[in-house]
Design a protein around this nucleic acid. Sequence first.
DNA 1: TAGATTGTTAATCGATTAACAATC
DNA 2: TAGATTGTTAATCGATTAACAATC
Lengths: 220, 220
Amino acid sequence: MPNKSNRVFKIDKLPAVKRLPAYLHLLRELSRRGEEFVSSSYFSEKMQIQPILVRKDLELTRVNGAPRKGYEVIELIKGIENFLGWNKSIDAFLIGVGQLGSSILGNQHLMNVGLKVVAAFDKDPAKIGRPIEGVSVFELGRLPELAKRIHVRIAILCVPPEEAQKATDLLVAAGIKGIWNFTHVTLVTPEDVVTQKEDLASGLAVMSAALTQSIQHKNN
Amino acid sequence: MPNKSNRVFKIDKLPAVKRLPAYLHLLRELSRRGEEFVSSSYFSEKMQIQPILVRKDLELTRVNGAPRKGYEVIELIKGIENFLGWNKSIDAFLIGVGQLGSSILGNQHLMNVGLKVVAAFDKDPAKIGRPIEGVSVFELGRLPELAKRIHVRIAILCVPPEEAQKATDLLVAAGIKGIWNFTHVTLVTPEDVVTQKEDLASGLAVMSAALTQSIQHKNN
DNA sequence: TAGATTGTTAATCGATTAACAATC
DNA sequence: TAGATTGTTAATCGATTAACAATC
């Protein structure tokens, strides 16, 4: 049952936060091209949202734009990176080196996101010892020790569903504060631990629903 | 600029639709265990949302629950599958067999979502001919012909950003109606073509923002 | 100066939650 | 019957959009 205390660290402006990486991506491109200023209408066109929504979103960064000129590209980049804590590199553990986990390790594109996996863990003794894609694989039990030693706060969870909650409990006990959840299980955590569930099926559902509805539309 | 006609096929209840796969997942598990009925409070607990939200969401399926008993598991499964068009297998093309595209082809887990890639396409002649993970790779120019022949409506877009819009135009011209967009580019399409953008960076942003905010919280 | 663009304040829209009657 | 659970109708909350004054 979702209790009120869960709200404490629930960030607000969730949709706006989700759009920040898209702004950042466009800003870096502009910066590469040597552009100094950018207006809300530029983002509006590229992202197909209203200019006013752009201005509202960018309020998060506390960067002020200049009338007639727009926002300073460099300032916005810094502002977004600061807001997200993406100004420094982010270390993470990866839990569960099965098919999905290995694929995340091996896929630069998937991880082209500023996150650096510094160690991987698995229950299966057969997988331990030999590095995968240059990342060492340790026995899951050694996680608390390593988490303390190298002060990692984020874990990427790729274990089978039936082990998800147990692994989560271990992570929480080890002081992990953010769990990027690639399982289908909704995790239970204390209020100061953030979980983010990724589910490709949601995206496909949106597309499928739109498609079946447009067919029904046609048939009417 | 998002014009009003874009709305025609914009599905509403978007958040609810995104939750449907999670319901489906739990329902299939219940079905496997031989359960006949399920109540909104079951989903509420598993998904950590309010029971009333569950009941609202399930309205989409038009399945009625019975007071005191709950919903019939089988009925709900059918209802959701029908709503999403997941009752039949969904064929798709994959465009761009680079690192990400190959990884999607190779990763059962990523695609454990009811989607079947029936053919892949690439611009690079070197990649054409030899199948990847059992899927044949064709020259991009042959897509219109094949789309017509095997009547595929969905494409998974994994090309480099600078080619994204051009590839999209080709897909649209070939009669593709749904584009699952794994590039960073916001695509422009006619109103009857649905696009769904997947971006892991959004998920990481949510987690990062929550983490940096919780630190600031602590320091106050 | 005139005009483009921001930022503020208010209005609208849609999603979630609450209250409670209906029902088996 | 009493009580658990749904489904309906209304209230609240948050996100987006609109209007427009401020500013360089």
